[in-house]
């Protein structure tokens, strides 16, 4: 899988390059600002662009803006945004153009190579990967509702779904059978009034529908 990295800290950029090579990714470019990122995506058309949010020249949100622009310009290129902090509003902006091939992770996740590599692969294959911290913030907001439609178990399945995980991965996490996960999914979709549509899409839609009440 071909990857472009945009990260202004040299230490992290080189570290990521090494790490991804170790996990058998092909790093076709590693750049340090948003302009160079867009140029190298134009040139290399990678499967995934890994983007830091704060980059030169203003060190504010140029990475996020570049990520949103890339998703519009190259819908088939996955975009994985990395940040020191998780922001619900950033996730919402990234999901604005749909839930395919997009991810948003806390930078801490690079310390677990297997998980991190899996997240990049999911995004590269058109799936999604959202940080558990983002998901728990999102779902945490709804916890106060008394007339909640979902059961506790359904909510934990939904949380893992929101992170972008497959049924198989969810089953492993919750120590339940994959068939049971499927049953919960059907229950969630039904409760949230989601009819059949492309599978992955419906999973993230479920999360959004749930969050937006």
């Amino acid at each position: 899988m071909r990857v472009v990295i945009a990260e202004d800290s040299t230490l992290l950029r080189e570290g990521l390059t090494l790490l991804l090579a170790e996990a058998s990714f092909e790093v076709v470019a590693a750049v340090e600002d948003a302009v160079a990122l867009v140029e190298s995506v134009d040139r290399h058309r990678p499967d995934v662009a890994i983007v830091d949010i704060r980059m030169p020249p203003t060190h504010t949100d140029e990475g996020l803006r570049a990520a949103v622009a890339l998703r519009r310009k190259y819908p088939s290129t996955g975009v994985l945004v990395l940040s020191q902090y998780v922001r619900v509003s950033y996730a919402a902006e990234l999901l604005d153009a749909g839930a395919d091939g997009v991810g948003y992770l806390l930078k801490d996740r690079v310390s677990d190579l297997a998980e991190f590599a899996a997240a990049i692969r999911r995004v590269g294959e058109g799936g999604s990967a959202f940080d558990p911290a983002v998901v728990s913030q999102l779902l945490g907001r709804r916890r106060g509702d008394s007339d909640d439609r979902l059961t506790d178990r359904e909510r934990s399945v939904l949380a893992l779904m929101a992170e972008g995980r497959t049924n198989q991965a969810i089953a492993q996490r919750l120590f339940i059978a994959e068939r049971t996960v499927e049953k919960h999914c059907t229950g969630i979709f039904a409760k949230l009034d989601l009819s059949a549509s492309p599978h992955d899409h419906r999973r993230v839609l479920a999360v959004l529908r749930y969050l937006n009440g």
Binding site: G15, L16, F116
Partner: peptide, 23 residues
């Protein structure tokens, strides 16, 4: 910004290296 660009990035790179070592 200094903390973000300095300490945090350095700690992350240590975490990353340790992650790789763990693997």
């Amino acid at each position: 910004r200094d903390l973000h660009d300095g300490v945090q990035q350095r700690l992350l790179s240590v975490a990353m290296t340790l992650g790789l070592a763990e693997t």
